[in-house]
Design a protein around this nucleic acid. Structure first.
Length: 880
RNA sequence: GCGAAAGUGGCGGAACUGGUAGACGCGCUGGCCUUAGGAGCCAGUGGGGCAACCCGUAAGAGUUCGAGUCUCUUCUUUCGCACCA
């Protein structure tokens, strides 16, 4: 072998070997255990960034490891290719999104190949391929037939200047990103998927997802948000009936119906029909409702905005005592949650308390604590006010505890037909219509005569024209006569195509199924799904903890209920990779606009006061500091791995990412240390080279094992110790990868072993064999992380077969055996010494050994200990 | 604002089940070597103290023989909040 480690040559050779042997092309094999290892497919934004390298290296480590465990591994890759950034690029450069996307895919694919991931490229798919998205359309039509997809109105961000719908990301401080215009809310008809029909099942099944991180299950459970409460109808007072032109009732949902007698106001959202009616009668109210229509639809914005409201002058009646209650319009009530209206109980709800305070609304204490902590709700809010207690001031429902009050009041409401207990979900149906070009067309036709008509299956896919260039003002599909014009499938007369496209989350909600049957042209999936699914290991960023993963769980169930699948949960095990963060810098030249500047082009300087300011190297002028955030195209703070790969090779880049931190942890980007990882690989190369240069090694299979030298004499103490460390390392690395899913400690363990091998200086045949064994284990253990160099070194160490085709070995139990162990000796919990005892020593023996130690006795004194705590093999604590 | 997580040397991190705090690596310091390479090798490296020892895991409290680990409060950071993906 070569004396110098030259990564470029080593990596090319290894990749050529895997390619020419079709090593990673997966085939179904009945009876053989399978392992479907899937990393979330990337959006083709242009170039890979370090977050991708981290994600795909984790997947590749597990895939290679499981393959060596004897499993039939499938690791596919594809492209989440529809979406907004392609349209933004088109606006900026005048290039059609299709071309931009396909060029990006080509470039990023070559980057993935250079990193040596063991991917089955024969199953590659891109969601913008008609072959893929025709099945989105087909599945959508099936859902529409079953009522899972349905139409209703929804609220979107509207840019009044560009006359276009904006994504939340395109709204900056309440203004349109291109025009700077104040954004308005607008109600438009959209398609929704009835995910709420699965709320109960999606929540209940979280318990079965034992291979998912606890935090993700908690987040999903909170997102679905089951709450038990009561629906209450407040009949309209005569003024409200008059305003709305008829009798009726304002419906609200509450989890605290025990506080019903504490209601002193009702609040409705600005979009509520009652608000609309009231606005028609009052200029001030109309102005307020109009103001509420400004700003974004984002919940985070709504929740942090100052809570304001205006009285409508209209009233509803308390359902049990008939007293009038004034209705307010409030900007914090969301039309999309519950009924778009809430009852206000300022004495027992913090938000209502603040609202009432600001608007001079009375409060009424209707719950007292069981203890005597407080009696009447006072002027300052206390958390205890919101706790359940004993009802009071509530007519005949006073002096009841929470459960009794809820039962009695709910029964009374039900008897009057003005309410009943029910379960409310926080989860809302999934709006999938997008007024955008670069997405999957919704397969519908609008006919003057027949109305909305589905495109027949035989005419799918409805192809998206690929030559349009959006300009930021509305959907180019709506301006393309070639796309729009069609014949009605029902009556044959001239009709127009639907121009809305689907949310890109639709694309990613079932791609993992398509990988199992990507060459099937007659159906979205076929029987091969049965073999490969569920995904055994799914790996992706924690930012997908809710939406993508929940939508996928829903979509899989919907397909199951259509009889297309025998599968309920798509992902058996989930590893949520921590985000790779980098600094964010930007300039905001005009309101609503933001220009992000790559951290590589920014210099930090400290002024006299120590205040650090950032400057753009291009013009030397200052830039705003946006703090830390996930590497992304939109924030222009990604770090391209290309230069690192070019300088040090793919193995160093992979090793560096895996060694930097455990996979689930957030990682602040820094390139410090990459040099050290390269140095380690070079030392490994050198150690193997020097070992082989000293004497030739004969070809052999499997691992070298040695327990005694040729003459039958036992190994030296140092040789025995190195063997023990060798097999201990194998044990640690195996546990770290298979059980703990941490790779930084696995790498650290092999580094320690290499250090030990370097220090080991015994000569002779037995010593050589012990060293050879240690080097083989190091190469084996590192191979999932740095497969190229290990591929080469494995051959050099005398193996015919490729390393990737070897079986992962078991540690040698004999080598691990230990005669004596070191005990930590504490006195009153403080470390005071260490003693060697026989491996199975009992407490008396250990205690005697410890007290024989002069250092220990100095602290323990001569008196007998009050108590001794003995943890065999580990520690002895003497309490005096 | 709400939901979820994280916080350990100068830096990345280790400590897996409540039991040696700082493994491994970076950086730094000193030395060696040299056909001077951004190479290699050796030693040291949490703070204080001559030492024995003492202090130390965001801050504050608590549980325990023993707490980085468990509980509570606070602070900071990250992720998500339904049209970025």
């Amino acid at each position: 072998m070569q004396e110098r480690y030259e990564p470029a040559a080593v990596e090319r050779a290894a990749q050529d070997y895997w390619d020419s042997h079709g090593t990673f092309a997966a085939r179904e094999s009945a009876g053989r255990g399978k392992y479907y290892c899937l990393s979330m497919f990337p959006y083709p934004s242009g170039r890979l960034h370090m977050g991708h390298v981290r994600n795909y290296t984790i997947g590749d480590v597990l895939a290679r490891f499981m393959r060596m465990q004897g499993l039939n591994v499938l690791q596919p890759m594809g492209w989440d290719a529809f979406g907004l950034p392609a349209e933004n690029a088109a606006i900026a450069n005048g290039v059609p999104p299709a071309r931009w996307t396909r060029e990006n895919i080509a470039y990023m694919k070559q980057q993935l190949r250079a990193l040596g991931f063991g991917l089955d490229w024969s199953r590659e798919l891109a969601t913008c391929d008609p072959d893929y998205y025709r099945w989105n359309q087909w599945l959508f039509l099936r859902m529409r037939e079953r009522g899972i997809a349905y139409k209703k109105t929804g609220i979107v961000n509207w840019d009044p200047i560009d006359q276009t719908v904006l994504a939340n990301e395109q709204v900056i401080d309440g203004r349109g990103w291109r025009t700077g215009a104040l954004v308005e809310k607008r109600e438009i008809p959209m398609y929704y998927l009835r995910i709420t029909a699965y709320a109960e099942e999606l929540l209940g099944a979280l318990d079965t997802l034992r291979g998912w991180p606890e935090r993700v299950r908690t987040m999903q459970a909170n997102w679905i948000g089951r709450s038990e409460g009561c629906e209450v109808a407040f009949p309209y007072a005569s003024d409200t009936s008059a305003a709305l032109g008829g009798a009726g009732a304002l419906k609200v949902f509450t989890t605290r119906v025990d506080t019903l007698f504490g209601v002193t106001f009702a609040a409705v959202s600005a979009e509520h029909p009652l608000a609309t009616a009231a606005a028609g009668r009052s200029a001030a109210l109309a102005a307020f409702v109009a103001e509420c229509r400004r700003g974004s639809t984002m919940e985070a914005d709504v929740a942090t905005m100052e809570k304001r409201g205006l009285a409508t002058g209209l009233h509803v009646l308390h359902p049990l005592n008939g007293k009038p209650i004034e209705v307010w319009v409030a900007n914090y009530v969301l039309m999309s949650y519950g009924e778009g209206a809430v009852m206000g109980v300022p004495a027992h709800d913090e938000r209502d308390f603040e609202f009432a305070h600001r608007n001079g609304i009375a409060l009424r204490t209707v719950v007292r604590p069981a203890g005597a902590d407080w009696d009447e709700v006072g002027a300052e809010w206390r958390a205890a006010y919101a706790a359940p207690g004993i009802t009071c001031n509530s007519d005949r429902y006073s002096n009841l505890d929470f459960d009794a009050a809820v039962d009695a009041i709910a029964a009374a409401l039900e008897q009057r037909g003005l309410g009943q207990k029910r379960v409310q979900w926080r989860l809302r149906d999934w709006g999938i219509s997008r007024q955008r070009y670069w997405g999957c067309p919704i397969p519908l036709v609008h006919c003057v005569q027949c109305g909305e008509v589905p495109v027949p299956d035989a005419e799918l896919p409805v192809r998206l024209p690929e030559d349009l260039v959006p300009d930021g003002s509305g959907n180019p599909l709506a301006k393309s006569e070639a796309f729009l014009r069609c014949a009605c499938p029902k009556c044959g007369k001239a009709a127009r195509r639907e121009t809305d496209t689907m949310d890109t989350f639709v694309d990613s909600s079932w791609y993992f199924l398509r990988f199992a049957s990507s060459d099937q042209h007659a159906a979205p999936v076929d029987e091969r799904v049965q073999y490969w699914l569920p995904v055994d290991q799914y790996i992706g960023g924690i930012e997908h903890a809710i939406l993508h993963l929940l939508y996928s769980r829903f979509w899989t169930r919907a397909m199951r209920d259509m009889g297309l699948l025998d599968l309920t949960e798509p992902f058996a095990n989930l590893l949520t990779q921590g985000m790779v963060l980098n600094q964010i810098y930007y300039r905001q030249p005009a309101a609503g606009r933001r220009l992000y500047i790559n951290p590589a082009e920014v210099e930090l300087r400290a002024d006299a006061a120590g205040q650090r300011s950032a400057y753009w190297l291009t013009d030397g002028q200052g830039v705003e500091q946006g703090g830390l955030g996930t590497m992304s195209k939109s924030k222009n703070n990604g770090v391209d791995p290309q230069s690192m790969v070019q300088k040090y090779g793919a193995d160093t880049a992979r090793l560096f990412m895996m060694f930097a931190s455990p996979p689930e942890q957030t990682l602040e980007w820094s390139e410090e240390g990459v040099q050290g990882q390269y140095r380690f690989l070079r030392r490994l190369w050198k150690a193997v080279h020097e070992h082989l240069a000293a004497a030739p090694v004969s070809a052999h299979q499997g691992l070298v094992r040695i327990a005694a030298d040729a003459a039958g004499a036992p190994l030296s103490a140092t040789a025995t110790q190195l063997r023990r460390q060798t097999h201990h390392t194998l044990e640690r690395v195996t546990g770290d990868i298979a059980r703990r899913r941490v790779f930084n400690t696995a790498i650290a363990a092999t580094m320690e072993l290499l250090n030990a091998v370097t220090r080991y200086d015994e000569a002779g045949t037995a010593a050589r064999t012990v060293r050879h064994e240690a080097l083989e284990i190091i190469v084996l253990c590192l191979s999932p992380m740095v497969p190229h160099i290990c591929h080469e070194l494995w051959h050099a160490l005398g193996h015919e077969r490729a390393l990737i085709d070897e079986a992962w070995p078991q540690p040698d139990a004999a080598a691990l055996r230990q005669e004596t162990v070191e005990l930590i000796v504490q006195v009153n919990g403080k470390l005071r010494g260490r003693v060697q005892v026989a491996a199975g020593a009992d407490e008396a023996t250990a205690s005697a050994a410890a007290l024989a130690d002069a250092g220990v006795r100095r602290f323990a004194g001569e008196a007998p200990p009050r108590r001794v705590i003995y943890v065999p093999g580990k520690l002895l604590n003497i309490v005096v």
